[in-house]
């Protein structure tokens, strides 16, 4: 093995991620096989004749052994074919596309606000540690994490949609909707998500930087006469990046994967809604496809976090 050690480490992480994704795909497939209930029966209803059921099973390929079906499914995914929804007989990829896009839209704009805000609040909390500002920030953050997201969601609807009527209570978005209207539609679900992820990121930022503030090189900076804010910005923050990126990525993943409840509350046409609808109908191919996409998002964001930690380490970036 040659090349720079950093490239090798990154290649290792990516390879591990791909391997993990395959393992997850097998798990998802196995999991949906164990689920009770029969797809054919649920499509045709209680009154279906045994012949009709047998025919449908044949048609759907449900009689083949599990591993054959797994590789058929996997092969389809690798060529961009996520299969057909059993209940609606629609191509999953085409239905899923816009919904994935909507979920990413919501996640992206929430992240754009939440990440800088969380890091800024974390920095402020460190700068004024143990003072009233720190306590206020921590108290607010703790309160917002303690409240479940559906409760926050309904509070937001009650105040800002019903009482003040600033924003719609139902976050409908559609193709061709003007950008600003779209943004307005996602303000409330975005805020609900923001309040869930903000506290975690902010507290981790605070803890990571405070941890670095104990180091001797921070004392060196202090004895050079640097101001507190410069010490935090120049000397503490660069060494706290790895843990901060980790928690940011974890929360980004939550923004995509954990939106189910918030999307349902605000009737937002994203992946979460879609998943919940089809779980109720036992539409296994859809559940599998959505599960796999969630897993892919989760794993790739974790790889990004790993790579960022590697890149943030000067010992790896500049070997001896």
């Amino acid at each position: 093995m040659g090349g720079s050690p950093i490239l090798r480490l990154i290649a290792q992480r990516v390879a591990m991620g791909i391997l993990l994704l395959f393992a997850v795909s097998a798990l998802i497939f196995a999991g949906t096989q164990i689920l009770p209930g029969d797809v054919a029966a649920s499509i045709l209803g209680q009154s279906a004749t045994p012949t009709a059921l047998a025919n449908l099973r044949q048609e759907l390929g449900l009689n083949d052994p599990a591993y054959v079906r797994y590789f058929r499914w996997l092969g389809g995914i690798l060529t961009g074919d996520l299969g057909t929804a059993l209940t609606t007989r629609q191509d999953i990829a085409t239905t899923l596309g816009p919904r994935l896009w909507n979920t990413l839209f919501l996640a992206f704009w929430t992240a754009v606000v939440a990440i800088p805000l969380a890091i800024l609040l974390g920095l402020l909390a460190v700068r004024y540690r143990n003072g009233p500002i720190d306590k206020a920030i921590s108290g607010f953050a703790l309160a917002s994490t303690s409240l479940p997201e559906f409760f926050i969601g309904y509070l937001l609807i009650f105040f800002f949609a019903v009482k003040l009527q600033w924003f719609p209570s139902i976050s409908t978005v559609y193709d061709g909707m003007p950008f600003l209207e779209k943004l307005q539609a996602i303000v409330l679900p975005g805020t609900a998500l923001l309040l869930v992820v903000l506290a975690h990121m902010m507290r981790m930022t605070r803890a990571a930087i405070l941890n670095v503030m104990q180091s001797a090189y921070v004392e060196t900076a202090e004895l050079k006469g640097l101001s507190q804010l410069n010490i935090i910005r120049k000397h503490a923050f660069p060494n706290a990046i790895a843990p901060i990126v980790n928690v940011v990525m974890l929360n980004l993943a939550f923004l995509v994967v954990g939106v189910v409840v918030v999307e349902v509350i605000f009737v937002y046409p994203g992946m979460g809604q879609y998943l919940v609808d089809h779980v109720a109908k036992r539409d296994v191919p859809v559940v599998q496809a959505v599960g796999l996409i969630f897993a892919a998002v989760y794993i790739s964001l974790n790889i990004v976090a790993d790579i960022a930690s590697i890149l943030a380490n000067p010992r790896l970036r500049h070997p001896r």
Partner: peptide
């Protein structure tokens, strides 16, 4: 070794 910032 501890008094220098490893990041700079």
């Amino acid at each position: 070794a501890a008094a220098f910032n490893p990041a700079h």
